[in-house]
Amino acid sequence: MEPSSIQITGGNPIFQGPITINVYNGEIKKNQKSSEAVNGKGWVESDYYRPVTNAKERDFVDHISRPKDFYLISNYPKGRVLIVNNEFRGEGDERHGSNKDVSGMYHLWKEMGFSITIETDLTAYNMGLRVEEFAAQQGRSDICVVIIMSHGKEDDLVFGSKRGELAAEKILNIITSSPSLKTKPKLIFFQMCRGSKVQTTHTDGEGFCTEDSTWINQLLRKVLPHGKRLGSEQTEVDALSSEYVEKTSDLMLAFATQPDCVALRDPKKGSWFIQSIRKVFTDKAAKHDVCALMEMVKDDLEKKSVHAPGTDLHEAVMNMDASDSFGKKRLMLFPGFPKCYEE
């Protein structure tokens, strides 16, 4: 069996040019010709991942005749995925376990039938540049997925390697402004801290973060100031600008955690948010649309907590922050369809 391959490119000086990763039967291994290891061990660690449950053919065929109810999925690959993972290797604050997230997301979206591009340790400038290039290269894809995994801080600033900063709203603006993505469903995930507070099971104390669903709407309003918040019924339809409607339509935006709070990551298993996405989408995408899947991710995260007596993380929990503008249309990923026969 011939391996498929991906390229991991690095903006960090530890990388000597692009690293090609070959994929054999679900295992990701380092190409022997590469001069640098991806995770310092010579290969990208990969757990065994359960195969994605495939959709039923009748459901896939049915959606084609219902364009008002479903986003049409007809191409193969069905979409493109950009994964940016800043590990900060050699910079003193390495994101241990993030390689598990890369591996998990690669396996998930590859099995879903997507084309995947992976970038690691990009500077803030190069992150913006790469997102722009990606947004302009969608071609015939039906769905666009962007996954940003990095350190972050208040005001939704994403750290690049060498500690530069890029605003999440800049990434959002690039994606929503791209002519090639107009009318296409766009999924944007941010795995990063949004502050230093810890969400806990206790409701008292300055370190507690409450769930605030208005923050994402405020972010969207910063990008597109004319129009109502997503989910708001306070503004009448005739108050919406055409620019706002066009740009915010067909969009799902999700952060791993609430504003001003930390996002949690297991150094051996990967981040809670990304691993919950992998788990839920693997088992449930065959029967449920993306909005329902993200509700399940939220529920899965709420079941997790840290047991670490005597530390700031004792009984820490994490609630994601998400919003969508799919309206009445449903986005089904239909794993296993359309069929593709590769030589």
Rank of each mutant, 00 (worst) to 15 (best):
M149A: 04
G92M: 04
P3L: 08
N99Y: 12
N39C: 06
P3H: 12
G17I: 03
N75F: 08
T120A: 15
Y24P: 02
F88Y: 14
D321T: 05
R50L: 12
Y71H: 15
I19G: 00
A308I: 03
E119V: 05
Q137A: 15
N75K: 13
K170T: 11
I147A: 12
L220M: 15
M149S: 02
A239T: 08
E295N: 15
F334W: 13
N319R: 13
F326T: 02
V23C: 15
V297Q: 02
L82M: 11
P259W: 00
R66T: 06
P77C: 07
D101Q: 03
I21C: 11
G231S: 14
G152W: 00
S46M: 13
G310V: 01
L313A: 06
S213I: 12
R278N: 13
G336S: 04
P309Y: 02
K303S: 09
F273G: 01
F70D: 10
A308H: 08
Q32N: 07
D321H: 12
S74A: 10
N12H: 06
L157V: 04
R194Q: 07
L230W: 13
D59S: 11
K33R: 05
E295L: 10
I171A: 08
L224I: 12
N217V: 11
L313I: 03
V131D: 06
L251H: 08
A254W: 03
K162P: 00
I171K: 11
I28H: 13
G227C: 11
V290F: 13
D204G: 03
Q16F: 08
Q234L: 14
K153N: 03
N12K: 07
K110M: 05
S5T: 11
V317L: 06
H288A: 09
N85V: 08
C193G: 04
L219F: 01
M1T: 09
Q234S: 13
D289Q: 05
D93H: 06
I28Q: 15
Q234V: 09
T282G: 03
V245N: 03
E233T: 08
V158K: 06
W215I: 07
P267I: 02
V38D: 01
D62R: 11
H288W: 10
R163Y: 10
L72P: 10
L129D: 10
M149R: 01
I277K: 00
H288G: 02
E132G: 04
A285N: 02
D260Y: 10
F281E: 00
P267R: 04
R278I: 15
K284F: 14
L166K: 12
A55V: 07
K287L: 12
D289P: 02
S325M: 12
F134P: 00
V223L: 13
T203V: 09
F15P: 00
F15D: 07
Q218R: 15
K329R: 15
Q275N: 12
N85M: 12
L219R: 14
G227M: 09
K78P: 04
S150D: 07
S323Y: 01
V61E: 11
G113D: 00
E111M: 00
S196H: 04
F189N: 01
Q258K: 03
E133V: 06
D283W: 00
S241P: 08
G79P: 12
S242A: 14
G160K: 06
Y125E: 14
G40Y: 06
N31M: 03
P335H: 01
K30H: 06
E133R: 10
